[in-house]
């Protein structure tokens, strides 16, 4: 685990997203970015040298957190995308 959900507060329903084929627990309302970092998945994409890259600005500006949505192959910003049950993404892009 990397990072901590602040205890003593109510989050949305427990859901599961799928990152690189593995189930990652999340709560409704969380962004994909939160779910990924909480599960210690700090690599969001890989650069031209195949080096892992992480989220940087967390406000939609920097595009460092672009992950690939498996359903349609589109690159989406994980910091702006709400986690949805069964949403599947890859970080090899």
């Amino acid at each position: 685990m990397s990072g901590t959900r602040i205890p003593g507060e109510t989050r949305g329903a427990a859901i599961t997203v799928i990152v690189d084929g593995a189930p990652v627990p999340a709560f409704a309302g969380e962004t994909l970015a939160t779910a990924m970092i909480a599960a210690d998945r700090t690599a969001f994409r890989h650069d031209t040298r195949r080096v892992a890259r992480g989220l940087f600005c967390n406000m939609g500006s920097c595009s460092e957190c672009l992950v690939t949505r498996v359903a349609d192959g589109r690159r989406i910003r994980a910091c702006l995308t709400e986690a949805a049950d069964g949403l599947e993404v890859r970080t090899d892009g």
């Binding site: 990072g3 602040i6 962004t31 909480a38 406000m59």
Partner: peptide, 19 residues
């Protein structure tokens, strides 16, 4: 991975209630 803007960290805390 792990280097962020300070504002990005703050947004996690404020909105996602996540450190």
């Amino acid at each position: 991975p792990g280097v962020m803007s300070a504002g990005g960290i703050q947004a996690f805390v404020k909105s996602q209630r996540f450190i």
